[in-house]
Write a protein that binds this DNA or RNA. Structure first.
Length: 259
DNA sequence: ATGGTGGACCTTCCA
């Protein structure tokens, strides 16, 4: 099974690129973030024409997450499970695709350390952990993929010094991510490329960051142990960040063999 | 030059 995650930064602006990329890459399951669409505006028919069923959790102007699958979509849950404080934004979508419980996540940015949005980000990650505890089991095949808005280690950014005092690198954010991972997830990308620098999924649009390879790895596909054992490939599709009108994020791919 | 891009959309917010 080939799984991808991609923050498209407006599906309306990016649809032709996403269609071309799907046809070329042929993933089985795709988690999208930042569709910036209402549910009625979601282009399900365009994906259907390419062989993908889809589910979308949107709110319009901001946020919005989707799952595309050519191996089925069942038991969709929109946002956090019942009993968890509801999210103000559309940032989480869960569904089962060919027996794998898939989560498309768009973790809040945080904006600035100490900002109200920063505490919302930490709370959100705690609620994500609760959601996993309530809705699935780490011994099952589980994928949590998306834009995490956290640089896991200093290896995942071009210049850690530039981030002193900034969000994405604080011990609190990394600890909150750690609590999600401790539920039972593996970052197979970093295991595969244990000490390799320069592998980034996001580049700021401004100041030529992409061409200077000044990026960060904030998009990742985390998987439960049963899938991680069958991990066959992890990569960032850097080519999809090139050309005219790209997203500021590149797609991240992970594939898993059969049992 | 004290900005720099790009997407939401109408003046400013967000990343």
């Amino acid at each position: 099974m080939l799984v991808a995650t991609w923050n498209v930064n407006s599906l309306k602006a990016r649809l032709p690129r996403v269609e071309d990329w799907l046809a070329q890459t042929q993933p089985d399951v795709v988690c999208l973030q930042e569709t910036k669409l209402s549910d009625p505006a979601f282009p399900a028919l365009a994906f259907s024409a390419l062989g993908y069923e889809s589910v979308h959790h949107g709110q319009g102007q901001w946020n919005g997450v989707a799952i595309l699958s050519r191996v089925g979509v069942e038991d969709t849950v929109f946002g956090f499970a019942d009993g968890i404080d509801a999210d103000q934004d559309a940032r989480l979508l869960s569904a089962t695709c060919d027996g794998v419980r898939v989560h498309s996540v768009y973790v809040p940015n945080g904006r600035a350390v100490g900002h109200e949005h920063y505490y919302y980000k930490l709370s959100w990650l705690g609620r994500l952990r609760n959601h996993l505890e309530q809705t699935c089991d780490p011994s099952d095949d589980v994928i949590v993929a998306g834009d995490w808005n956290i640089i896991p280690t200093d290896l995942d950014v071009w210049d850690p010094a530039k981030f002193e005092g900034a969000t994405h690198v604080t011990p609190e954010e990394r600890a909150a991510l750690g609590e999600v991972i401790a539920w039972g997830l593996v970052d197979t990308f970093r295991e595969r490329y244990a000490d390799a620098p320069g592998l980034y999924s996001y580049y700021d649009y401004t100041a030529g960051h992409f061409h200077k390879r000044e990026g960060m790895r904030i998009d990742y596909v985390l998987s439960s142990a049963s899938l991680a054992e069958r991990s066959r490939l992890d990569l960032v599709d850097r080519n999809a960040r090139k050309g005219s009108k790209p997203s500021d994020h590149a797609p991240v791919l992970a594939s898993y063999g059969c049992d």
